[in-house]
Nucleic acid binder design. Structure first.
Length: 278
DNA sequence: CCACAGGACGGCT
DNA sequence: AGCCGTCCTGTG
């Protein structure tokens, strides 16, 4: 096990459970097993330290720091957002320490294609089905986990087999995406360098990827914070607290108000709305 | 058994 | 360009 001294605000629990990732498992002692691209980690906070163990301890501190975005200074982002919208301040204060997890691009694309018109438990179920059938098995603390398969691992998977994993009508979207990546019609690394609107448009050329899904992919896999993923929950909040309706109006408001950190504002609002009663 | 929740698509104005 | 029925699965 390694211990990482946490110097800045960091809410481990909220960061893991706020809806960014689907493949984590709460343990009886309250710690979390989280499945990363190439390993399984167990994490918990104790006396200001992030305590991490893994089946693969190679370069573990750097891997975990990168995954939870621990070297990013969110106080800069928070100050920026505070200066733009007074109404957001309670949500910012409440969510201080919520980090944007840096996820693997391929897994994120498949995750969020599956997320469309779907609920969180179903998404997790489908992802775990895919991993169990096509991913590499990892034994960790007397448990068996499966890493999420790469696009090469999934090269020969059929739509029928995907549907059997409970992805529903999204089977063909996923299959086409896997094929395009394997055929080099899509370069997953290209999106890091594209300007956000170009990247959104390029992602949305693919069947099954609309504005919400493309925004989530760019946020969670490519760290583009000037996106604004609008789901039904966001629509409700915007109507209730800001008297704004319609996706176009919401997007215009967000970009004008929150600018380059629009996506972080949404995450804070969502986390606040979901957890403040607890 | 039915109603509903959750984004993208495609066919219709 | 905007509206709306449809796609699949799980839950109440």
């Amino acid at each position: 096990m390694i211990k990482i001294k946490i110097e800045k605000p960091f809410k481990l629990s909220d960061t893991i459970t706020c809806g960014q990732i689907f493949r984590f498992f709460v343990q009886e002692d309250g710690s979390y097993d989280v499945i990363l691209k190439d390993r399984v980690i167990n994490v918990f906070m104790e006396d200001g330290f992030l305590c991490v163990s893994s089946n693969n301890e190679n370069d573990l501190e750097n891997v975990v720091k990168n995954y939870f975005d621990l070297d990013n200074d969110y106080s800069v982002i928070n100050s920026f957002l505070e200066s733009k919208d007074n109404k957001l301040i309670p949500a910012i204060k409440f969510s201080d320490g919520l980090m944007m997890i840096r996820q693997d691009p391929f897994e994120t694309i498949i995750e969020y294609i599956i997320s469309s018109n779907n609920g969180v438990p179903q998404i997790a179920n489908a992802l775990n089905n895919i991993a169990t059938r096509y991913g590499k098995k990892v034994n960790f603390n007397d448990k068996e986990y499966y890493l999420f398969p790469s696009y090469k691992d999934l090269k020969n998977v059929t739509e029928e087999e995907l549907r059997a994993c409970k992805v529903g009508f999204r089977d063909k979207y996923i299959k086409r995406m896997i094929d395009k990546i394997n055929d080099n019609d899509i370069d997953l690394n290209e999106f890091y360098g594209l300007e956000t609107n170009e990247a959104l448009n390029k992602l949305m050329e693919n069947a099954g990827i609309g504005p919400k899904v493309a925004s989530c992919i760019l946020l969670f896999a490519y760290q583009k914070y000037d996106v604004f993923p609008i789901d039904t929950w966001v629509k409700k909040v915007m109507k209730k607290d800001y008297a704004i309706e319609g996706e176009k109006n919401i997007r215009n408001f967000a970009i004008k108000t929150y600018g380059k950190y629009s996506a972080i504002a949404i995450q804070y609002l969502f986390n606040y709305g979901r957890n403040k009663e607890k």
